[in-house]
């Protein structure tokens, strides 16, 4: 399912950039769009604010078909303390903006994309298009929580894909 996970991340990142190109983070010295996959990064003692952090949870498999269909839960956490210019008093607005950006990115039609295999990138090879699509459901927003000066939310998206022959 790694290809499905990578593909969903790539699609979501592309759509979030379109929605708000100014949302960026600096990670390992590189400025990049404000979305990251936690398991692909160095372990950090501090959660980055004002970006979307993806992590993968429960996985279910339906084998009653020509190809196994796998559904994975993608948890998307984000938090903000607002801006220093407004002494953090805009943290509610900042979180609402992130809610909106995520909602649009997930719900933009179509809610599917051709699955790609990105494994070759590590060896200087090209991304390979696979035979099936990745598709996903609607975003489910969790409760807003307060941690000190930060407002925080976790949202969940179910991501589905067929497990192709030989796919890791």
């Amino acid at each position: 399912m790694q290809s499905a996970k990578d593909t969903f991340y790539e699609v979501l990142r592309g759509r979030l950039v379109v929605g708000n190109p100014e949302r960026t983070i600096v990670l390992r010295g590189v400025t990049r769009p404000g979305v990251m996959v936690v398991e692909n990064e160095l372990v950090s003692a501090v959660d980055l604010t004002d970006c979307f952090r993806l992590s993968w949870g429960e996985s279910k498999t339906d084998v009653a078909g020509a190809l196994p269909m796998v559904a994975m839960s993608c948890e998307i956490e984000y938090e903000t303390a607002g801006t220093a210019a407004n002494a953090g008093m805009d943290r509610g607005r900042m979180l609402a903006a992130m809610d909106g950006e995520l909602l649009v990115a997930v719900r933009t039609w179509p809610q599917h994309a051709l699955k790609n295999n990105y494994a070759g990138l590590a060896f200087g090879q090209a991304v390979k298009a696979m035979s099936t699509n990745v598709w996903w459901g609607d975003v489910v927003f969790g409760e807003l929580t307060v941690e000190g000066e930060r407002l925080k939310r976790a949202a969940t998206v179910q991501v589905m894909s067929y497990q192709e022959a030989g796919e890791l």
């Binding site: 078909g65 020509a66 190809l67 269909m69 809610q111 035979s131 099936t132 598709w135 459901g137 589905m160 067929y162 192709e164």
Partner: peptide, 14 residues
């Protein structure tokens, strides 16, 4: 038409 497309049941959303 891909082989996969011919064999999998359509998964419809709306």
């Amino acid at each position: 038409m891909s082989t996969v497309g011919e064999t999998m049941s359509p998964v419809l959303r709306r």
